[in-house]
């Protein structure tokens, strides 16, 4: 349950990491194909890997938590008194 609560904050923190990355130089003045070799910045491919990696991690964790916690939100779940009538609407 605590993991469920903490997970979004973990995701937020991980996704805000790119704020720390150095900005690469602009496209002008850079010969095509040499950017990755000369600039110290992050390449887009690495950034992609990182961001989608975090994404995948979050999805998997959420799925695992869903499996683990099961029907946890059950208690206090409201029972709809008019549920059988809905079909007639």
């Amino acid at each position: 349950m605590d993991a469920l609560r903490v997970l979004p904050f973990l995701g937020l923190a991980l996704w805000m990491v790119p704020l720390l990355w150095p900005l690469g130089p602009g496209p002008e003045g850079l010969p095509p194909g040499t950017g990755a070799d000369t600039a110290p910045g992050m390449t887009t491919a690495d950034a992609l890997r990182y961001i989608f990696g975090v994404w995948l991690l979050l999805i998997l964790s959420a799925a695992v938590l869903w499996r683990r916690t099961g029907d946890l939100p059950g208690p206090g779940e409201p029972v709809d008194p008019a549920a059988p009538a809905e079909g007639g609407g």
Binding site: P18, G24, G33, A36, T44
Partner: peptide, 24 residues
């Protein structure tokens, strides 16, 4: 594809931090 990405005009991380956070 990844190589082509790195070679492209957008091959560098050039996202403004404030925009990154604000847009999220």
């Amino acid at each position: 594809t990844l190589a082509r990405i790195d070679a492209s005009d957008i091959g560098q991380w050039r996202v403004d931090g404030s925009r990154w956070a604000a847009l999220t």
